[in-house]
Design a protein around this nucleic acid. Structure first.
Lengths: 249, 249
DNA sequence: GTGTTATACTGGTCATACCAGTTTTAAGTG
DNA sequence: CACTTAAAACTGGTATGACCAGTATAACAC
């Protein structure tokens, strides 16, 4: 009965999953739907666990299991003393997490990740050039300035990278890109830091400078609305990364 | 203290999240890491809850909270009588869930998803044309045949779609594509079925036929190794979908 | 052999209890 | 009356121990 194993053809969608048996699951769904339908808005508080005992007619452990699920799914946050769990604002953090999980567990090679990332961000950069607003440009300008100031600190430099790629995606006005690209960048952060740590200080500086140069090239293309230029520059940037990756291995 | 709100620049990466306070959370992380590092492989069973009591030196409710989190994150599955939770194979279910959640909360629009998907699969189709093996071609051929046989059953037709897109990604030899494309396709399944249900039988048939035609065009381009043709055909296919989407709304 | 039945286990749930914090309330103070 | 302070009434986190309805297994009968 390992329906889960088969990469599998389809029949799945004809049958819908059998009704959930666990009470905690039912409670989870009930509250999740309330949030999804907007009847519980961000900032609202759930009743206290002991109150929910009466509402759901279930014991506290059962209710707590539901709360843990909601929390894990990023819908709520629970703070000890403070009364009741708080409904969180829509937030990509959980999506980002499960994306990272899926990628790290799916035995995905760094090279495949880099390849996909290159394609994804190349397209995104093109969109960004066409859709960036004045605000987007300013935000990127500010960030680039900050990055320029920390070229000699490669850890700092690398840690700012996801933000840069995130801002580009934001300018592209596509939330999926924002989440994905930032996650891709973050996933590669660990590798980059390890890679740079092995270099001599002079080489480190040389590398961060080279990367910064590329960032500026990309930014300039986006700023002047040059979609093809932005795409090309981004592709170059990420292909360089991928090449570095393959040489390192 | 709503660090969670700020779309945010970076400082995040300098500080690491404060040590986890809840025991269930720690247990969750411990088991998750075991799975991620491959020390617990798909199919393996976790010890029974009562055994874990001794291993973790924590009470059963606490351990069960951790299990619910693992389950929700898609790492394990628990079946009542059967001994111990089972570690699931790498599986995009959790990614799919979080994407679906993001969609339902309105953080991501269907249109943005469709746009990103178009870009992603366009590139993937091109790769597939260059890298498909004989096996890939045969698998796709078999599937297309099956799909042709169910043109008059739109539910069946739609339910086979993710497999088709998954096979293309598989032929592209990029695991990231496989996960994403199949997920995208699944997410749109619900929409498609609802859309088709509203049509008259004749229109339904017309639509499934048109889609099938596109699938064949894509397949033929991939089969003859025509990357540009495959990309173009895929783009056309998905742009048609996106257009349909915008008209429907 | 095969078929059947106990028995020992499993997960799902409940009730109750305790602790360490926080909030609220009430008391006391100026 | 306003202000501080201390007690009471919460809150979430955790632990016990119990019960049930199922499943797996091993002992038993044939």
């Amino acid at each position: 009965m390992n329906r889960v194993d088969t990469p599998s053809l389809s029949r799945e969608s004809l049958f819908r999953p059998v009704e959930t048996k666990r009470a905690s699951e039912a409670i989870f769904e009930q509250i999740r739907d309330l949030i999804a339908r907007g009847e519980l808005k961000p900032g609202d508080r759930l009743p206290s666990e002991r109150n929910m005992i009466e509402m759901f007619q279930r014991s506290r452990p059962t209710i707590r299991e539901a709360l843990r699920m909601l929390e894990r799914a990023g819908y709520i946050r629970t703070v000890p003393g403070s009364n009741g769990a708080v409904v969180l604002p829509p937030n990509d953090k959980n999506l980002e997490n499960s994306l990272a999980d899926a990628l790290s567990i799916g035995h995905i090679s760094l090279d495949q990740l880099a390849e996909y990332r290159t394609a994804s961000e190349t397209v995104t950069a093109g969109w960004a050039a066409l859709r960036r607003t004045e605000d987007d440009i300013q935000a990127m300008e500010r960030l680039l300035e900050r990055m320029e100031g920390s070229l000699d600190d490669y850890e700092q430099s690398v840690s700012l990278d996801p933000d840069f790629h995130g801002l580009i995606a934001q300018a592209a006005k596509n939330t999926v890109s924002v989440i994905f690209n930032r996650t891709f960048s973050r996933l590669n952060q660990g590798y980059m830091i390890g890679r740079l740590a092995k270099l001599a200080p002079a080489e480190q500086l040389e590398m961060t400078q080279r990367v910064h140069q590329m960032h500026e090239t990309i930014f300039n293309a986006i700023k002047r609305g040059d979609a093809e230029g932005a795409s090309a520059a981004m592709r170059l940037h990420l292909m360089a990364f991928r090449e570095d990756l393959s040489q390192d291995a």
